[in-house]
Design a protein around this nucleic acid. Structure first.
Lengths: 345, 345
DNA sequence: ATTGGCACTCTGCTTGGGAGAGTGCTAATT
DNA sequence: AATTAGCACTCTCCCAAGCAGAGTGCCAAT
């Protein structure tokens, strides 16, 4: 359905999009003509624009205003016309510096990156960490947390730490605990959490026959701890940046919906879902993203990984009118930096 | 400076405040007269209102509009005129139910409570958890996280868990680690983290003399882990509720400042600071709160505790025009529930 | 194929009245 | 002496009309 444009059409579309990105106002033929150094007169531009409107790349908010790009127009622009702007050295350095700050856990690193990206881009930044399902266990420890609670600490491949409190099985001594610990650890290391869960359930079946009290307890504890899968986490930074966008300021309804959506992490998760697997930049424009209730919103996102496994995704959420030529390299670079930092954990 | 009001003045002030809370519009003398079943004519009310304005409890946005309460007016209302509304049974039950959901760590409990409180009140809810400084250690464990990193897991009095990754001292075997573990644990249990830090530094002084390599390593690790104090955490739920308030919707400048403030957790921390120590409800009205850049904002907050020690505070942030008669009992009850749940951890 | 010219349309801003709500003051009433 | 009715006054809000500006579409000329 993507109609291919001739040179002139493309040039005009590009100028319209870029002007609109800058000003958030409908763009008139005069403006475009000037931008081309009068190579073509406004009248000619008008004809071209009328063509572009017919194909569905531009539209008019009302008769006799300038044109604004449609979703399809933006899409064509992003796919074929976009000139990625180089990141300034300072920006790259800043992003790279995240590495040094992150002596702490991998969580901290991701969070820092998100915050930084949000200030650099002046948009809201979302990071999804999908640790539970893909990461292999590096170690698993049970600690006594109180008289009737046990703390399970899981260290995942590459510095992610998860803990969870579980109710105690009665009558587990510290000595028992150590044994159980060793037993579970043997079983667990190298598996992902869902894999471990399956394995434990299997073992329990077998165990029922040759009844060994200690093993039994170990398995029970293990299955309990993994009953609910550890949730992925979602961090959002820079929500308030949405307010910088003139188009939302005077449409309070939209604003409300957007900010409410930010509180529903599950929705956000779905929004970045498709970016999880691939490391390529994904751009979802306006109505393209299937999440209900977010009109005129674009998402630019990319997955990041740790070694071989996909770890999560990071993305920017802003108006359809985002400065893609700047935002895309930003996200891309950030995802790359993130991957390379996590590599060495 | 709080002028005491006679009966009639108090009655009128109260009606004005309550009407204004409801409508967010200036209140006229006619309205008040009606609300008193015409016991007094509008003209009389006007005189009384003029008096109230003189004392500084009311003001007019412009000549010949109705009156709105000033900060001082709200303060008088909260201090002397407020009739606390009973919480509905359903609300109390709902809040109490948080207990059951919170099988997980204490963090989860606090977070749940915050979210719930925000939906019940339709305001933004903030919780501060000041775990690090006051809570005594229940256990301290060092785990091998990777070849060059060690994971320190601290379980604090009452179910709070903290972990932190530290760079490894070279040449620590698993066996060493276990010894160090036992050694540190002995030293640590029962102390708060700041206390432990001091103790470790002291020991290091002594240790320098009679050089014992293992102990030395232990102390080094310990001091490293505690170099930065564990930060208190701040959760904010229901930010978007601010948008429900008509007075902010058409003042985008204020809106921006408020939402930006929400992103600065340190400022929020300061905002709830005074509530940390006491379990009594604190109401900070408008310009009373010393935090810059939050005009016309009120904070209703209360500390919560665990056993004897203050654990943090929970509060609602909304327009000066909050429904205090409802909000105050809500916060109070929530803080009580929180304290009682944490008691049994 | 491009362009200049022109009539037309739509928005946004300003202006000028009312209508409505509310006040303050004064004089009458209780 | 306190209360109230009455009245003039003030201020906002809303609506309509008018006007400038920007932009378009189309036709005829280049």
């Amino acid at each position: 359905m993507t109609a291919v444009l001739d040179d002139r059409g493309a040039r005009v579309l590009r100028l319209v999009v870029e002007d609109y990105i800058e000003t958030a106002e409908p763009v008139g033929s005069r403006t475009i003509s000037k931008k081309m150094n009068q190579a073509l007169s406004p009248a000619t531009i008008r004809n071209i624009m009328a063509d572009l409107e017919e194909i569905g790349y531009l539209c008019q908010p009302h008769t006799s205003a300038g044109r604004i790009p449609t979703g399809a127009g933006f899409r064509y622009y992003v796919n074929y016309l976009l000139a990625r702007r180089q990141l300034a050295r300072s920006e790259r350095d800043l992003l790279r510096k995240v590495a040094e700050e992150g002596v702490a856990g991998a969580d901290e690193v991701v969070r820092h990156a998100s915050r930084l990206l949000s200030t650099l881009s002046r948009h809201a930044c979302v990071v999804v960490v999908s640790r539970s399902s893909h990461q292999a266990l590096r170690s698993l420890s049970l600690l006594r947390a109180s008289t009737d609670r046990i703390l399970l600490v899981a260290v995942l491949q590459g510095g992610w730490v998860q803990h969870r409190l579980i109710e105690d099985e009665p009558g587990i001594t510290t000595y028992d605990l150590e044994k159980i610990n060793a037993y579970l650890n043997d079983m667990a290391v190298g598996l992902t959490l869902p894999q471990l869960r399956v394995k434990i359930l299997n073992e329990m079946q077998k165990e029922k026959a040759r009844y060994d009290s200690l093993m039994h307890k170990a398995l029970l504890l293990g299955s309990k701890a993994l009953a609910e899968s550890l949730p992925g986490e979602v961090y959002i930074e820079g929500r308030a940046n949405i307010l910088e966008q003139p188009e939302f300021v005077d449409d309070v309804q939209k604003l409300k919906r957007i900010l409410h959506t930010f509180e529903e992490k599950s929705v956000i998760l779905r929004l970045l879902d498709s970016a999880l697997e691939s490391d390529a930049i994904q751009v979802s424009i306006g109505s393209e993203n299937t999440v209900e209730g977010l009109p005129d919103i674009s998402v630019v996102s990319s997955g990041y990984h740790q070694g071989e496994t996909a770890m999560g995704s990071i993305g920017l959420i802003g108006p359809i009118r985002m400065d893609y030529s700047r935002v895309i390299p930003l996200v891309e670079y950030t995802a790359r930096v993130l991957s390379s930092i996590l590599e060495h954990r």
